[in-house]
Design a protein around this nucleic acid. Structure first.
Length: 558
RNA sequence: GCGCCCGUGGCUCAGGGGAUAGAGCGACUGACUACGAAUCAGUAGGCCGCAGGUUCAAAUCCUGCCGGGCGCACCA
């Protein structure tokens, strides 16, 4: 089902399309542009505008305003909600809607409740959304936090936009870094037993591993040292790895992030990798050089060819990742989406090249790059170093500033911009903190509704009629803002940009606060009071829905 | 050197072919004996990094430069 605002838009687009076709016949135009409506940035320009006349002025060999005039004469509106069309500026067509549209839009919100905001641009396509996928060799840090926030919000948004979404975490539980992991574990275990051994330079220096091994040492003393080294390391990994994975899972849950699927890299070893490599070989995409097997990724736009099987016969990380992506493609999704940190952007070309080499459509695979996060405390950048294990973990952030604030900060900027995360601001419970601004609007509404109940004031049955009483500019602006949600969800989904929802939340909250300061709800004349109660109730629904799409709570009291 | 991202009011960032470039914070001035002042109103503040080009129209697209970040492994 399409929302009122979408129906109006498509009705105008359709009418304009027909007008254009007629004009094209009269003037014998050949190529017709697509009719796209835009929201004018100024209210005096109406609710919708089209630049159609400007785009065909050259072809038509007529001045744009004259074309606009012809289009306007040929235009018929099916929705019945277009009140007036004007030609403005260089040749824009501005569509002004009749006031009833706002009441209809708000009535729809009240009728749909938290289902409002959905749209169907996804047409139930199946999407596999992979994100976080951190190595289970250490805790999640801030960077993972941003990826987790963006991924989980995007999942909700895509779902609301009519996609079937599966969230997947790719668990690197095999390969070289597990070897390094096991080495570090052994060192930590021996250290816990009092031995003087040092971590390798490229080992995992986090304190978390030392703690784990101290616990194990307390439990088993030195009994494990009787094992030969490979067995010892294996035993340490099988003790530590599940605990690390569980810790990651717990940190994510506390951050409001859940995965339907945890895909283990180890499940690809060796059969799936051999199969993928075999297929590349059959397709002539591999060659041998210096004892290693190389993928001809330069054929498909990569900077250089890549080793798939090392000269010692061990597959590279890329080989596993190719097998993993082959598996994803073979599972039959319509779209694959990966969210990667900016430090992995150089990897895009080779994985896309690999997909093409296997005969898959690389267009199906989108990779969202999330830029780095810089933490600030007391106005100073917080220095982090992965090598020395000196990093701020996600759980520390959540503990310090709270889940809601952390999520909002991660989500309020475009993913492709670096993010300055001000810890002091994020935990500040004041008007400087945007997340409180939005939540406060919601709490304020709840407070009014609570008092209305206590006073025995009943809002009227929801419908167009009572809502038509709302005529002040603040009321109209609020109603218009509320109606936008399905469009914002659609844009955020199709562009895969969750930050649009965070911006919308702030705008909507702002519009509500403005209304609140200008228009008295309780104590207004009875019918108007009723209408306003309906309006704030719809506002509550839309604010709560927007926040829930972002994974942020909508408190009734603060 | 090559590749990707970013450069927009003092600060942090939206806008990514269209009409007078927006918001928040910060600064200044105002608004609570009525529903939550965690709010609202107003003022000041911009050659949208620079230079070319494409276009009826460029912050937006193209090219080149200049800054900043991140990558450039038979690591993951």
């Amino acid at each position: 089902m399409r929302s009122v605002i979408e129906q109006i838009r498509s009705s105008i687009e359709e009418g304009l399309g027909l007008a254009l076709e007629k004009l094209a016949r009269d003037l014998q135009l050949e190529t017709l542009p697509q009719v796209i409506l835009e929201r004018p940035n100024q209210r005096v320009h109406g609710q919708w505008a089209s630049n159609l006349a400007l785009t065909i002025t050259k072809q038509a060999k007529l001045p744009p305003r004259q074309i606009a005039q012809l289009l306007m004469e040929n235009f018929h509106d099916r929705s019945g909600l277009v009140q007036r069309i004007e030609i403005a500026g260089p040749g824009f067509l501005n569509f002004h809607l009749s006031p009833a549209w706002r009441a209809e839009a708000v009535a729809e919100i009240l009728a749909q409740g938290d289902r409002f905001g959905s749209c169907d641009i996804g047409r139930q396509e199946k999407v596999l959304l992979e994100f976080v996928s951190a190595n289970p060799t250490g805790p999640l840090h801030v960077g993972h936090g941003r990826g987790a926030a963006v991924g989980s919000a995007l999942a909700s948004i895509l779902q609301a936009a009519g996609y079937q979404v599966t969230c997947e975490f790719y668990l690197n539980d095999a390969g070289n870094q597990i070897n390094k992991f096991s080495h570090s574990l052994e060192v930590r275990y021996r250290q816990a037993l009092g031995q003087d051994v040092q971590l390798p330079e490229d080992g995992y220096h986090g304190e978390d591993l030392a703690e784990l091994m101290a616990r194990l040492a307390a439990e088993k003393q030195d009994s494990l040292l009787a094992l030969p080294e490979p067995e010892l390391r294996k035993a340490l990994v099988s003790y530590a790895l599940p605990l690390k994975v569980a810790a990651i899972r717990r940190d994510l849950e506390e951050f409001g992030v859940r995965f339907q699927s945890w895909f283990r890299e180890s499940s690809l070893h060796p059969a799936a990798i051999e199969e993928a490599v075999g297929e590349l070989k059959d397709r002539g995409q591999l060659y041998e050089n210096d004892g290693a097997l190389w993928l001809r990724s330069t054929d498909f736009g990569d900077d250089k060819d890549r080793v798939v099987i090392r000269d010692n016969g061990v597959p590279t990380y890329l080989a596993a990742d190719i097998a993993y992506h082959k598996d994803k493609y073979d599972r039959g999704y319509d779209r694959l989406v990966n969210i990667w940190g900016a430090d992995h952007h150089g990897y895009i070309a080779r994985i896309k090249a690999a997909a093409r080499s296997l005969g898959y459509d690389p267009e199906k695979l989108s990779i969202i790059i999330v830029q780095m996060v810089n933490l600030f405390r007391d106005g100073q950048a917080v220095i982090m170093s992965k090598r020395t294990g000196q990093l701020v973990t996600l759980s520390e952030i959540v503990e310090e500033v709270g889940k809601d604030s952390a999520r909002f900060f991660f989500l309020m900027r475009s993913s492709e911009s670096q993010l300055d995360f001000d810890l002091d601001l994020a935990k500040e419970q004041s008007d400087r903190n945007p997340v409180f601004y939005v939540q406060y609007a919601h709490a304020r509404i709840c407070s009014i509704l609570r008092q209305a109940r206590e006073q025995g004031v009943e809002p009227p049955a929801a419908g167009v009629e009572p809502l038509s009483l709302l005529k002040t500019p603040e009321e109209e602006l609020l109603m218009e803002e509320l109606a936008q949600l399905p469009l914002v969800v659609g844009e955020a989904a199709s562009r895969m940009e969750p930050h649009r929802l965070a911006h919308y939340a702030q705008e909507l909250a702002g519009q509500f606060h403005l209304f609140y300061n200008r228009c008295r709800v309780l104590g207004a004349e009875e019918e108007l009071q009723g209408a306003r109660l309906l309006l704030i109730s719809a506002s509550r629904t839309v604010l709560a829905k927007t926040l829930s799409l972002l994974g942020i709570s909508a408190p009734e009291r603060m």
